[in-house]
């Protein structure tokens, strides 16, 4: 019988005398029925390529979400948007003062600009990773209500942190200028450096968002990890202090590489060397690819139990 629908009728009034049909009498071959009418499995994770295309289609969602959140976050406190700059600024003042006194004459000559660059650049990644870890778990309302590729959320967080970084970079430029550094063409390198760092943050955010969704304890450990990284990244000292094998190893730290890139661009006498760019570029490429794949693989699980 060519009746693909397999009537056994789910009890539709038109199904005739078997008005009240117990569930047992639904058609025998349900997957076959679905296939004949071209019904697709719901909630199934698309292949990576299709997933990335879906993600690209939601780019307006990602940017609009980042902008809305950025504005909303900045209206909560009395000083609002200014905190995006005041936070790293007070941090730089504290570390600058403490380690300035501690190191005494041993500190780098361009101390104020040196520390400020370090704190601002490290803060960018630190903030972005902290927020990225909560990108999925902190958006339960959206995730439970609407269907969209979840990678939009880490992307939007990375963008939001980039928006917050832009005014901070402006202030950083003013500080650098005030300490007597001359304006130079190398300042232009700040923009690609920030773009690369934002992509690095995205890769890290994707990984951490997945990890946090799997094991919520990650958010407890993350601050310690970031703090350790902070002290290892040459925020307030130069790696030259260390003997040879150690110095080379420490130069492979991506956080140090990003700091070195910005210092190389802003500070005279610190030539924008190629090696931090290579280190940062390699880390970014690896983290971004790994982050996308790792995040995508758990797509079906976010926001569910």
């Amino acid at each position: 019988m060519n009746d693909p629908v397999g009537l056994a009728g789910t009890g539709h009034p038109e199904a005739g005398p078997r008005g009240t049909v117990p569930a047992a009498s639904v058609p025998p071959d349900l997957p076959g029925l679905a296939a004949r009418y071209g019904l697709a499995p719901v909630g199934a994770r698309p292949p990576l390529g299709a997933y990335l295309r879906e993600l690209w289609r939601r780019r307006h969602f990602a940017t609009a979400l980042a902008r809305s959140r950025f504005v909303a976050n900045s209206t909560g406190d009395r000083l609002g948007m200014a905190w995006n700059v005041l936070r790293p600024l007070t941090q730089a003042a504290v570390y600058g003062l403490v380690f300035g006194i501690l190191f005494g004459a041993d500190r780098p000559a361009d101390w104020v600009a040196f520390v400020t660059c370090g704190v601002f650049v490290f803060g960018f990644t630190s903030q972005a990773l902290t927020a990225g870890a909560r990108a999925v778990t902190g958006n339960g309302g959206l995730v439970r209500a609407l269907r969209f590729p979840r990678a939009v959320l880490p992307v939007s967080v990375a963008l939001q942190e980039l928006y917050a970084m832009l005014p901070a970079i402006g202030v950083l430029a003013v500080i650098v200028l005030a300490t007597g550094e001359p304006v130079s063409w190398t300042w232009l390198l700040v923009l690609p450096a920030l773009a690369l760092q934002a992509l690095f943050n995205l890769g890290g955010g994707l990984l951490l968002a997945r990890l946090t969704a799997d094991v919520s304890d990650v958010t407890q450990l993350l601050p310690f990890g970031l703090r350790t990284l902070f002290y290892l990244s040459g925020v307030f000292y130069e790696l030259d202090r260390f003997p040879d094998p150690y110095r080379q190893i420490m130069e492979l730290n991506p956080a140090h590489a990003f700091i070195a890139m910005i210092r190389g661009a802003f500070l005279e006498g610190r030539a924008p060397g190629l090696s931090p760019w290579l280190v940062a570029g390699a880390w970014t490429a690896v983290l971004l690819v790994a982050g996308l794949i790792v995040f995508w693989r758990a797509e079906e699980r976010y926001g569910r139990d």
Binding site: L30, P31, A34, Y37, G38, L39, A40, P41, V42, G43, A44, S68, N139, G140, G141, L142, R144, A145, L146, R147, E300, R301, G303, R304
Partner: peptide
């Protein structure tokens, strides 16, 4: 709606069913 992964079995649907529930607050 595809918002809950089955432990076993499968759901097939035409398009993307949209769910309206009382307990999601968006943002």
């Amino acid at each position: 709606a595809g918002l809950q992964t089955p432990t076993r079995g499968r759901v097939f649907a035409d398009g993307h069913p949209s769910l309206l529930s009382v307990n999601a607050a968006l943002i």
